[in-house]
Nucleic acid binder design. Structure first.
Lengths: 133, 133
DNA sequence: TGCGTTTTGTTATAATATAACACTTCCAGC
DNA sequence: GCTGGAAGTGTTATATTATAACAAAACGCA
């Protein structure tokens, strides 16, 4: 595993942890530029790539955004649930999830190596305050 | 459901069906420009949005690309399996998948409305020709 | 026909991501 | 200490993906 981007990894992780909702690479860049005005996009993307390799950050493919991993254990199978109201993301660890999905597609002989599972919906606190239909 | 973009929907669907791998909106635009040189991006995105609403096209969030739906039945729960070798996408329909995932996250009270499930791996035909590790 | 609504066309630009290469840093081996 | 290669960083430029904004045309219907 390479170590590219390590210089700003802790700063970026702190920024992602501070925000309750996912942030885009350019959101992070904007924040970091307050202290390091000359930072350019590749620096951010390199650091995010390393953080993702290490399992400390997840990329939300359906939002083009990033969140800090919320569990102590990294390198796990997880579901990312995105609230369409408040934007917050919850991470659910499901140890055998990948094997369940593998079974679903095993008929075709496909062998998964990485998975993307993102749910869009309404989180508990936003659902509570909603007027019933 | 709006009807925006209907003018080019059948052409776009034909282009997506012709290609075995997912195509970006700009790939589609490039092909359509051969016959309609003045087409602009919003036209493509409008048509793709309508096709997706109708379940005829799926968006691959992790590739920023689009494929034609491969099943007769639309508006279903499916898994999109993307081969990292040949680029082809297989669609697996799993009727109760959404309820399984809902159970996985139900502890938190999250209520899903839409899901994104994409597997990256190696398809059967590419796996066959691989040298074992 | 005239009017509102919807769709389409067009221009411009926003937002996301990476290629390419110069420069620096680090460290192993001499 | 020097030196040379590998790894990391900085910088510029540009590629790729997507949408805002508004003008023009088509459509439906009183």
């Amino acid at each position: 595993m390479s170590e590219r981007g390590r210089k700003y990894q802790s700063d970026i992780l702190a920024i992602l942890r501070r925000g309750s909702a996912p942030q885009s690479a350019y959101d992070v860049l904007g924040e970091l530029r307050q202290s390091h005005p000359k930072l350019a996009p590749p620096t951010i993307y390199r650091a995010l790539a390393s953080l993702m390799e290490r399992g400390l950050v997840h990329r939300l493919e359906s939002l083009n955004a990033f969140v800090a991993c919320q569990c102590g254990e990294h390198q796990h199978s997880s579901i990312l649930s995105i609230c369409e109201d408040c934007g917050k993301v919850e991470e659910s660890v499901v140890p055998d999830l990948l094997s369940v999905l593998t079974n679903c597609v095993s008929a075709s002989g496909f062998r998964p190596r990485r998975h993307v599972i993102e749910l869009h919906g309404v989180c508990a606190s936003c659902g509570d305050v909603r007027v019933p239909a």
